[in-house]
Design a protein around this nucleic acid. Structure first.
Lengths: 161, 161
DNA sequence: TTCAAAGTTGGAAACATTATAATCTGTTTT
DNA sequence: AAAACAGATTATAATGTTTCCAACTTTGAA
């Protein structure tokens, strides 16, 4: 979701840190760069694993701290319901849609322009200053719909844990 | 978010279990009832703590199992990015907006009709069968906006972890 | 150069969630 | 009605993520 204008995006994150009066340490810069150069929604652990190749001393705590900082600055989003149970991070804070399959947990991202005016309306009604948005639809992807109807033809429809 | 028509809502969850060929055990029924009778977004632990008063033998595992079952049936939603890092559950799967303050983590729920046609459009484009939706706006609530401008007047703007 | 503040590190601790094995319950089969 | 069986629940152990903490390092200012 995040790799349309990597340089500009990276700048955005870096500027967020600067504006807050925080230091631009190599660790923080590397984390920002990683976030804007991936289309995945990485977890703290993944970021740490990859960046450790360049920064062997990089601590997991630093990764968590930096992500938490970026989230509280509104520069990135924490996405906590991907289906596994880690927190994923998304550097794309423009309005877009996540389609989450309730069965296989796959996620598709869909950019969506129409969200902008909803945003303005919600801001006006609530007095919030809005910094980003995420619309999540839950449902069955085409493949899983097929599997569901298979099951109905046959016997039990159980989905128990 | 969930307490408009508790009886009907409870029926909806129970029917979802039935349709899937699952048993309507007292534990499952109690969990369904709890979910539809609260405006909060409870965690598994909270549900367990409360229901234990009536079902002293109720196991945490059963609560997790039942919630997972309901989620995979599409009857409720798992909300994983409330700011703390537990998974919260929401029995309201109609389109509505969550406004999340990035600073104090408070959440406001706002029903929103305009989401329905976005839903249809997304379904048509992607082939998903959509069962529910959640639009999350991230931003600063009025109180936190005030705090932010205080800080700008004074000295540092730091938000570090 | 010295000092204080900010940042990082590594490891320990906390905690939510999942997996496992045993037990229980209800239903169907004989 | 007894036996067999699948579905559920329970208690507990194991897993793995995230947070916490104290020590150490770096940076910037006096």
């Amino acid at each position: 979701m995040a790799a349309f204008a990597p340089q500009g995006e990276e700048k955005r994150l870096v500027e967020a840190l600067q504006k807050a009066g925080l230091r631009l340490t190599p660790q923080r810069l590397a984390i920002c760069r990683y976030l804007v150069n991936t289309d995945e929604h990485p977890t703290a652990q993944e970021i740490h694993r990859v960046l450790k190749e360049d920064f062997p001393s990089l601590s997991l705590a630093t990764v968590y701290n930096t992500l938490e900082t970026l989230v509280s600055l509104g520069a990135i989003h924490a996405v906590g319901d991907a289906g596994d149970d880690r927190v994923h991070y998304d550097a794309d804070i423009t309005p877009h849609i996540n389609l989450v399959c309730i069965r296989c947990h796959r996620i598709i991202d869909v950019p969506h322009e129409a969200l902008s005016h909803l945003e303005e309306e919600a801001a006006a009604r609530s007095g919030y200053r809005i910094l980003g948005a995420r619309l999540v639809y839950y449902g069955l992807c085409p493949a899983c719909q097929r599997l569901e109807s298979e099951k109905e033809k046959h016997g039990s429809t159980s989905v128990a844990a």
